[in-house]
Every structure is written in structure tokens, then in C-alpha cells.
């Protein structure tokens, strides 16, 4: 086994099948270090990491692992404790592994992107600090991933792989600068490449004027992506919370579904994300109670039914949560009438 005292994860053991033939890589463990949010570094801290890696490991890194951690490759168990302590003294802690909260990660967000509708770095940092125990001491049924994307372009691919995905959206009208629209019109055919590609056909470009029927906009980002200088996401910014995405193991890959169509993340920030943390805790409690070994939360929800899950965590069903309403007639009604003489609190 590989690891450090007091932690149940963060270090992944790698042992050679042929230790006698290859004694140099008899043990070649990996340490996952929680990355800096947004993947920002300084040369100073990188050089110090390089020194630690050379002294205690194989001089190899991953920048970064798929979840987001920095990985230091190639150390023996006897080096693990000193490597770990040097990293923490430099300010780096271990990330998640095994059946635990995996290291949360986010896109570059407001640090260098005009489209972020909330502070992805701040929320990710905050949640990571809040849930250190859940990351470092695996007690879950299986892995749980949280990723924060600042807008529906989802550059962190949260919607395709994270159990809990937070994706920025907005409510107010897309902000249009007609002067800049005119500039783009000199470069390409706005009707062909922007208006006609709008998925809800809520745009019009006539006589050099761009109009958007925002009431029918689904916030897909296409027009904004095409003309970043002319169009900006609307105000009243918030986020969407999706749940249940995962890769193939065990029951096929799946995209999540929308749990909260509009989460007022910027207001929740002022309250230390109390709403979100409470929601996450409810989801974990339900998963802990009813999930089986190696069952991701999305698979559990499918097994018990979305309706039961929503009831358990105290959310009302919304049309945003499903692709379309049910097409089969096998409804188990909970409300029904009985003849008066049998009436004894049978209102369901």
C-alpha cells in the first residue's frame, strides 16, 4: 500500500509486476496535489515543486491529471511522508482519490474570461476547503466529482463527467453593441453564420440591426461566441446546477440532468455558499443511505427514480429536469378517491 498518515487517499500506489528485473521502478507511486484554482502558478512555486519532485520522486509530473490535480510521479513509500510534508509546507495539499470527493476544479472564469457569470475560482476554492475531510478520507460509495464552469461553453467539461456540475447562465437580455455588430458584418455573413444557427430562431438581422427575442433564448452561447465584441451575456447572472454525469463505469456514460435551473450563486456567495453546501449535504446523505458500493449518484437516481430523489432532497419537479415528459402510461397514482364508507384518512 502507498499513502501518508491520516489520509485515505491522494496517493496512488503503483508497483511493478517484475520488481527483480526492474528494481528502479519496483515502487513508482503517484501523489495527487490539489491544483491552484484556474491552474495559475508562479515560476517560484513551480521550481520548488520541481525540486521536491527531483529529490523525492522520479522527476516527472502531470500538468495536470484529468480531474485537475498536479501529479508527481515515481516515488517509493519510504519517501511519501517527507514528500507530502514538503508539499504542505509549500502550501500544497493532497487531492482526492478512491471513493471520496475528488478534487473540485473549474474553468479560468472571471480571471480571464468575459463570459463567466460567477466567480468559478472562488466557489471551487471555497468548496474544496469546506470538504477537506470528504476529499482526504474516503467514506463514499464511489467517487464524487464537482466542477464549475463559468458559462454554457463549459470549458471544464463539467456536464459530461461531474456528479455535480455548476454551469453559469444569466436571465436578463443579451447586451448588444450595434456598432460592433456592424463591424462584424464587414467580416462575415451575420444572417448565415449567427442568426440562422440560433437553435430557437430567436434572432433577427434586418437592415443592419440585430434583434434578439430573449424570452426564447436558451443561452447556448453561439451568437456570443461568434461576436464577442458585439454581444455579451445578460445581467442577472447565476448558474445552473446539474447532477449525475459520469463516464462509462458501470452502467454506460451519462450526461446529468438539470437539478436547479437558476441558482443565485452570486447571492449565495455572500452567505458562504450556504444553500449549495446544504444541497450537497442532502445529496450525499441520500446517496449514503440508499446507494450501493460503486454506484455513482447518477446511477442511484436512475435506479430509485428521479421523483423519489427529488422528494428526498426537498426539490419540486420542473420541466427543465427532463428531456420530455413520460411517454408510457404506467403511473402509480398517489392520489385517488375511495367510497365514503371506507373513508379513513386514505387521501394518499
Amino acid at each position: 500500500m502507498a499513502g501518508v498518515r491520516g489520509y485515505g487517499g491522494g496517493i496512488v500506489g503503483r508497483f511493478s509486476d517484475e520488481p527483480d528485473e526492474y528494481p528502479g521502478v519496483k515502487e513508482y507511486h503517484t501523489a495527487r496535489l490539489n491544483q491552484i484554482e484556474g491552474f495559475f502558478y508562479t515560476s517560484d512555486v513551480l521550481r520548488k515543486l520541481a525540486d521536491i519532485c527531483d529529490e523525492h520522486a522520479g522527476g516527472l509530473f502531470n500538468f495536470h491529471g484529468s480531474t485537475g490535480d498536479i501529479q508527481i510521479l515515481g516515488f517509493k513509500q519510504e519517501e511519501a511522508e517527507e514528500l507530502f510534508q514538503k508539499c504542505t509546507h509549500l502550501g500544497f495539499d493532497l487531492g482526492g482519490s478512491g471513493s471520496a470527493l475528488r478534487t473540485p476544479s473549474c474553468c479560468v472564469g472571471p480571471a480571464r474570461c468575459e463570459w463567466a457569470t460567477y466567480d468559478t475560482l472562488h466557489i471551487t476554492d471555497n468548496l474544496t476547503r469546506e470538504f477537506q475531510n470528504e476529499m482526504h478520507r474516503p467514506t463514499f460509495n464511489y467517487k464524487f466529482k464537482i466542477k464549475c464552469a463559468g458559462c454554457p461553453n463549459d470549458c471544464i467539461a463539467s456536464g459530461a463527467r461531474s456528479d455535480l456540475s455548476i454551469v453559469g447562465v444569466w436571465k436578463a437580455n443579451i447586451r448588444i453593441d450595434q456598432k460592433e455588430v456592424a463591424e462584424y458584418a464587414k467580416k462575415f455573413d451575420i444572417k448565415k453564420y449567427v442568426v440562422d444557427k440560433c437553435p430557437t430562431h430567436c434572432m433577427d438581422y434586418t437592415d443592419g440591426k440585430l434583434t434578439i427575442d430573449d424570452s426564447n433564448c436558451v443561452k447556448c452561447m453561439h451568437c456570443i461566441n461568434s461576436m464577442p465584441k458585439a454581444l455579451r451575456p445578460g445581467l442577472e447572472k447565476g448558474a445552473q446546477i446539474r447532477i449525475g454525469a459520469k463516464v462509462p463505469m458501470v452502467q454506460d456514460p451519462r450526461l446529468g440532468f438539470i437539478l436547479i435551473p437558476f441558482y443565485d450563486v452570486n447571492k449565495d456567495k455572500e452567505e458562504d455558499y450556504a444553500f449549495l453546501k446544504d444541497l450537497i449535504q442532502k445529496i450525499w446523505d441520500f446517496w449514503d443511505e440508499y446507494g450501493t458500493n460503486r454506484e455513482r449518484v447518477g446511477e442511484l437516481i436512475q435506479r430509485v427514480g428521479v421523483g423519489n430523489f427529488l422528494e428526498a432532497i426537498g426539490l419540486d419537479p420542473l420541466p427543465e429536469m427532463v428531456e420530455y415528459p413520460r411517454a408510457n402510461p404506467f403511473i402509480k397514482f398517489e392520489e385517488y378517491l375511495v367510497p365514503d364508507d371506507e373513508e379513513e384518512g386514505k387521501e394518499g
Binding site: 491544483q35 491552484i36 484554482e37 484556474g38 495539499d93 480571471a111 476554492d125 477537506q132
Partner: peptide, 23 residues
């Protein structure tokens, strides 16, 4: 022995131009 400190704080690693124009 330090444990459970989380990641280094990102604000300490942002270039000054990003700090000035964050968001």
C-alpha cells in the same frame, strides 16, 4: 505536520494585470 490545508490560494498566483481586471 500540516494537514487538510486545501490548495494554495489562487489570489496569490494571479498576475497583477489579472488582479486589476478580475471580472
Amino acid at each position: 505536520r500540516i494537514t487538510d490545508i486545501g490548495p494554495p490560494h489562487y489570489e496569490d498566483f494571479l498576475p497583477p494585470i489579472i488582479k486589476r481586471n478580475y471580472g
